[in-house]
Write a protein that binds this DNA or RNA. Structure first.
Lengths: 227, 227
DNA sequence: AAATTGTTCTTCGTATACACTCGGTCGGGA
DNA sequence: TCCCGACCGAGTGTATACGAAGAACAATTT
């Protein structure tokens, strides 16, 4: 397994810094590094088995993405999402993903729709198997796919980084909603397939309102650690 | 004066990489580095009088922000904004800045409004003086200020980076519209002062529609270099 | 006990080295 | 002449080492 990883690390042409960035993101999203936790360059370099240079470059991007906060001369700490930022996130998502849904409806090819349907099927299966992690993953994949179909790179890249944070927040709190939201996904894909922009936008808004409410409800419980 | 070592870029306490990033952004926005131009690390390091490390870290962030494209093993080139991406930018701005206007209307304090009015005054003056560069600058400042008043950090940070691109596109093309848009700005600030979210959102949409139309008209003329 | 001084940890920037890869060039063969 | 493959150089990707400076904390002194 370790060999396999090395192979991928070496053979693949992906720069190390990107892999470090990806690993860092997932570590934060998965809660391996908790909000407020100190992240020294040396420690990360050791954790990922690389030198400090790629770590530093990854950290700068992670900072730009909002996953870590860098204090000058002090180092990096994992950012602490507050319930306030969750509300803000959803306010932005509402605007962005509704636009994405509209554009996707207007531009989706039959192949695009088929891909979405396939994801829907896999999601249903995973839900039946009670495989929450997989459901959450498919959830992300579906939304990202819609973003991509929208064909607006700005929308796509911005929402992508937003979505990672959504995942983060959910992971720290409530993953239980994912199955429940699947019905709304079906509505959304139906709307996109119909080519009706207004309808797709509306479906996206409904989905987000429900997700937002659920996230909020859960956040009140206080998943945010003392700091 | 004994510290002539530091007058390269910074006698400041800001990390060098941030200064390099800022310098790189303005160089691109101002057209000192043209779209498609090759940016080797060594060259930038020499241009800014620093070593490769800060340059690299700045480049990664510039890539995340969309100012440069990094080709694996080939290096960085200045991104080439196409008329397509301009349209995409405005589609996103429409959603985001209208939200910002609404939130700003709901949350603006009298002091906030006073600050906006002051900017408006300065803008009027600059317009009378035909100082287009200053008008463009105030234009940015005004919009950024509204974003900040909205109190949504996500909105603020996303729109901020978007706005830098707006400036870029305008700088490469039409700065002439700036004075014309000033009347719309007054409407917008009036609406924010009124505290009426709907009205503020509407004013923002009208402003953006006009700006978008102007940008497009100009882009058709083809400011995008052969590449 | 309070203030000052040192010590240590860590970032920040620089410098250097080297493998690897891509792109172009040059030369030979059809 | 044209094509094709080997070679070469430029530039990135990564590692490593080192010095300087800031921040936090402990130790020492008054």
């Amino acid at each position: 397994m370790a060999e396999d990883l090395r192979d991928k690390l070496g053979a693949q042409h992906l720069p190390l810094r990107d892999q470090v960035l990806a690993a860092l993101r997932t570590a934060i999203i998965d809660g391996d590094y908790l909000p407020g936790e100190r992240l020294t360059e040396d420690r990360l370099a050791e954790d990922f088995g690389v030198s400090r240079n790629p770590v530093r470059e990854a950290l700068r991007v992670a900072e730009a993405e909002g996953f870590v906060v860098i204090l000058p001369r002090r180092g990096a700490v994992v950012a602490s999402p507050s319930s306030g930022t969750i509300a803000d996130m959803f306010a932005v998502r509402e605007r962005l993903e509704s636009l994405a849904a509209r554009l996707a409806a207007e531009r989706a090819t039959p192949a695009d729709v088929a891909a979405l349907r396939a994801l829907l099927d896999q999601g249903r299966e995973a839900t039946q198997r009670q495989d929450l992690a997989r459901v959450a993953e498919l959830n992300s994949t579906l939304h990202l796919r819609i973003l991509q179909i929208s064909g607006n790179p700005w929308l796509s890249s911005i929402a992508k980084s937003l979505y990672l944070h959504v995942q983060w927040v959910f992971r720290l709190g409530a993953a239980e909603r994912a199955p429940h939201s699947w019905a709304e996904h079906i509505q959304l894909v139906d709307a996109i397939e119909s080519g009706d922009g207004d309808r797709a936008e509306q479906a996206a808004l409904i989905h987000l309102a429900a997700a937002s409410a659920a996230a909020f409800e859960n956040a009140e419980g206080g998943y945010v650690a003392a700091h």
